[in-house]
């Protein structure tokens, strides 16, 4: 077995194990941390495909930012593990349906004509000067510039929507505007008084 294949199986095994633990771990914080491990292994597998930009971005965005916010929310919740296990049987049909749908979709994608193993031969190894970042940047800003700009617009709208949904002015707040605090001069607060010395 080639060394690269061995590395692939190591990453894949860790990823499958971590993904399994995400849904079986009792403690939600543990589940979230296993999801981090799964992302990390996925990054490793992408690295094997010489897609270092995608691999590092996956770690940067999902592990470094998204999962941190996830953990924030999960840690804040007061979770009762016993109550979470209630209603397992009533949710089972819905969950099973979604799982079956996912499996069917995956079979369609991987077993279909377009993505089967023989339709997707192993890409030739890249030349020495190849830079994945440069290639992806070139493609994004030439061939796929309109979809790319469209995606960024959608993200911008989502961002503005999220801000407007959560932004509310509460009445009766006593916090002071930092601008006012910063613009205070010495003359506003201190008065120098010249007093003649008192004599007995």
């Amino acid at each position: 077995m080639e060394f690269k294949t061995f590395v692939f199986y190591v990453f894949a095994a860790i990823m499958v194990f971590a993904a399994l633990r995400v849904i079986t771990a009792r403690n939600p914080v543990h589940a979230a941390l296993f999801l981090v491990l799964a992302f990390f292994s996925a990054g490793g597998i992408w690295m094997l495909l010489e897609a270092e930009f995608l691999a590092i971005t996956l770690v940067l965005v999902y592990v470094g930012a998204v999962m941190v916010l996830f953990l924030f929310v999960i840690m804040m919740l007061d979770i009762n593990v016993d109550r979470m296990r209630q209603g397992f049987w009533s949710y089972l049909p819905v969950g099973a349906l979604i799982a079956i749908l996912l499996v069917v979709e995956m079979v369609l994608v991987l077993g279909g004509r377009y993505f089967a193993l023989d339709a997707m031969p192993e890409p030739p190894p890249a030349q020495a000067g190849y830079s994945n970042t440069r290639e992806i940047g070139r493609l994004l800003y030439t061939d796929y510039v309109y979809p790319f700009e469209l995606a960024s617009l959608v993200l911008l709208i989502a961002m503005v929507a999220a801000v407007t949904l959560t932004l509310r002015k509460r009445k009766g707040l006593k916090s002071i505007d930092p601008e006012i605090q910063l613009s205070v001069k010495r003359e506003d607060r201190v008065r120098l008084v010249n007093m003649p010395a008192e004599k007995e």
Binding site: E52, F53, I56, L60, V63, G64, T133
Partner: peptide, 14 residues
């Protein structure tokens, strides 16, 4: 490595 700066950013975010 090619993407050294990105790597630094990703690792320090951990």
């Amino acid at each position: 490595i090619n993407a050294g700066l990105l790597f630094l950013l990703a690792v320090t975010s951990l």
